[in-house]
């Protein structure tokens, strides 16, 4: 019998703890498939964030370090400088990367740190119970914006990919989405490209993945996918923001 589908070797057997309909599981799988396809699992060191993906070190079947909140790019820098032949990636959410860890991600990118970041943007803090994220859309209701995000009080949502693309040190930046099969396929290509960028020693690479949080958005998984497509993509346009040859 021919096996047509199996768990990637780069994922452990540990069942995900993510909520039903959460897209973290999809992105974990994409990253793991890419690690398998590029045959880099044995020389990869991953860095897990603080946030919903805090247990990523239990899921990726490679050596892992768990970083303090927002500090994954600094931790990854330390690892990569010691082990330049290893593939080093961070997996971070929007609170981790775009709020508390803004300085770390900006400076890892501007140094052209030869690491890969997978950035999950679901416009909300999931782990702590649905508070406003730096990427929460104007008008979006969260635990800490009960009347909807008001630009006069809470400012505007930040477009990290565009911002990091302006930096000389970034080599490859793309924003993708996982709200349907077509986009998931595209997302995987982008993740692969990001790791290939690192393997080629070109510098900092990041894939921003627009994701859903049905639990904290208060929607069914299907509604959440639709909401992402209708509301997030117009503000966070998909595509390659930076690519160095």
């Amino acid at each position: 019998m021919i096996k047509v589908f199996e768990r990637p070797k780069s994922l452990t057997d540990k069942p995900f703890h993510y909520c039903p309909g959460c897209t973290h599981g999809i992105v974990h799988r994409l990253v793991a498939e890419v690690m398998d396809e590029l045959n880099i699992r044995e020389r990869t060191v991953g860095v897990a964030p603080v946030g919903c993906a805090v247990f990523a070190y239990e899921y990726f079947n490679c050596d892992m370090q768990e970083a303090a909140h927002g500090r994954a790019p600094a931790v990854a820098t330390g690892i990569k400088r010691v082990l330049p032949d290893c593939v080093v990636f961070t997996y971070q959410g929007d609170g981790d990367l775009a709020a508390i860890g803004t300085a770390e991600i900006v400076h890892a990118a501007t140094r052209g740190e030869n690491i890969t970041t997978v950035f999950i943007n679901n416009a909300i803090y999931g782990m702590t119970g649905g508070q406003m994220a730096p990427t929460t859309l104007i008008g979006q209701v969260t635990a800490t914006t009960p009347y909807g995000r008001d630009k006069d009080r809470a400012g505007y949502p930040v477009r990290m990919s565009e911002m990091l693309a302006t930096l000389e040190g970034s080599a490859y930046i793309e924003r993708v989405s996982v709200h349907d099969i077509k986009h998931i396929t595209q997302a995987k290509k982008a993740v692969k490209k990001a790791f290939e960028t690192q393997l080629a020693g070109k510098g900092f690479s990041m894939v921003e993945v627009l994701s859903t949080c049905p639990t904290n958005w208060g929607m069914t998984p299907a509604e959440a996918l639709k909401w992402l497509e209708t509301n997030m993509i117009p503000y966070y346009p998909l595509g390659v923001k930076k690519e160095v040859e």
């Binding site: 370090q65 600094a74 931790v75 820098t77 330390g78 010691v82 290893c86 300085a103 770390e104 400076h107």
Partner: peptide, 26 residues
């Protein structure tokens, strides 16, 4: 070896964390 002037003390100590975790004297 490698020297990095980090963007903050916070980043510096976390670079130390990563390098120490990778087995280096740091």
């Amino acid at each position: 070896g490698c020297f990095i002037q980090a963007e903050s003390e916070v980043s510096a100590i976390n670079m130390v964390y990563g390098a120490a975790g990778a087995g280096a004297r740091v």
